[in-house]
Amino acid sequence: MTSESFRDAESLQTEEILRRFDQVFLTHDPADLQQLVADDCVIENTQPAPDGSRHEGKEACIALWTRIATNADIHFENERYIARGDHGVIQWRLVWGPDPSSSVRGVNLMRVRAGQIVEAQGYVKGV
Rank of each mutant, 00 (worst) to 15 (best):
G52T: 02
S53H: 06
D51T: 08
V107P: 04
M110R: 12
E44P: 13
H75N: 00
T14V: 03
N71R: 09
K58T: 14
A60M: 00
L33F: 11
I90R: 07
R54A: 04
E79I: 14
Q47H: 11
D32S: 12
R113L: 03
R19Y: 08
P50Q: 00
T2K: 13
C41L: 05
Q34G: 01
R20E: 08
V124P: 05
D99F: 10
K125F: 04
I17V: 15
E44L: 14
I117M: 12
L12C: 07
I17A: 02
A60C: 01
I68R: 03
G85K: 06
D73K: 15
V37M: 07
S5H: 02
T2N: 15
N45P: 06
T14S: 03
F76L: 12
Q13E: 14
G106L: 09
S102G: 13
V127S: 10
C61F: 11
P98A: 01
A63S: 09
E119V: 09
Q34V: 15
Q116H: 11
L26F: 09
N71P: 08
W65G: 12
R113H: 06
G115Q: 04
C61A: 15
R19W: 04
Q35K: 14
D39G: 13
V107M: 05
D39C: 07
P98D: 13
Q23R: 13
V89R: 12
M1K: 07
D51Q: 09
R20Y: 04
E59C: 13
E10G: 00
A31P: 04
I43Y: 04
W65Y: 15
G52F: 00
W65H: 09
N45C: 09
T70E: 02
L33D: 07
R54N: 11
N71F: 09
T66K: 08
V112T: 10
Q34L: 11
N78W: 07
N45G: 14
S102Y: 11
T66V: 10
T46I: 15
D39F: 09
V37D: 02
R111P: 13
D8W: 04
P100Y: 03
I17D: 01
A63H: 14
T14F: 04
A9F: 05
K58S: 02
F76N: 05
Q35Y: 13
R54Q: 09
N78H: 09
S5V: 12
R113T: 02
V127W: 05
I17L: 12
P98Y: 13
G97S: 10
N45E: 07
E77I: 12
N108K: 00
I117P: 06
M1H: 01
Q91C: 12
D40I: 10
I74H: 12
T2F: 14
G52Q: 10
